[in-house]
């Protein structure tokens, strides 16, 4: 089956880790992930500025490695990201903002990407809240 997975929670929320473990199980089960779409506070799960204590889970690092290693399409909603201070180099320059904290493999794009993924996938599974 084809899955679209959307994350609405930041990396310190248990649902962010849960989403990653679910995504890993999806691939391990022989299914396909059409796209990962990070919306609302989920944009923070793609931040390159989250520093975890050494004895804690580095979830943003795990997400990044997962997307890179599995060559997944990892999209972060641009409107949600800007509002929450998650910017790539282009947006940081456009708004003369402090600095960029969104890097490859993540890409900023619009809600159209969520809709496209929802149309292409057999299942849309969202994670967020708590």
């Amino acid at each position: 089956m084809k899955f679209a997975i959307a994350l609405f929670a930041p990396p310190h929320a248990p649902s962010s880790r849960r989403a990653l473990r679910f995504a890993q199980a999806v691939l391990a089960g022989g299914h396909e992930i059409v796209r990962l779409f990070f919306y609302q506070d989920g944009v923070h799960s793609a931040s390159s500025n989250v520093i975890s204590p050494q004895d804690e889970l580095d979830l943003t690092g795990e997400w990044r490695d997962f997307v890179r290693t599995q060559r997944l399409d990892g999209v972060v909603c641009i409107a949600a990201a800007l509002r929450r201070g998650v910017l790539d180099t282009q947006e940081a320059q456009r708004y003369a903002a402090g600095s960029a904290n969104l890097q490859a493999p993540w890409e900023l794009s619009g809600l159209g990407q969520l809709h496209e993924a929802t149309q292409q996938a057999d299942r849309l599974v969202c994670f967020g809240g708590s």
């Binding site: 919306y39 609302q40 409107a79 949600a80 509002r83 619009g110 809600l111 159209g112 969520l114 809709h115």
Partner: peptide, 15 residues
Amino acid sequence: PTAREALDIALAGGA
């Protein structure tokens, strides 16, 4: 922003 972000999903889909 949740109410607005829910609305944005709907409007994007309508578009």
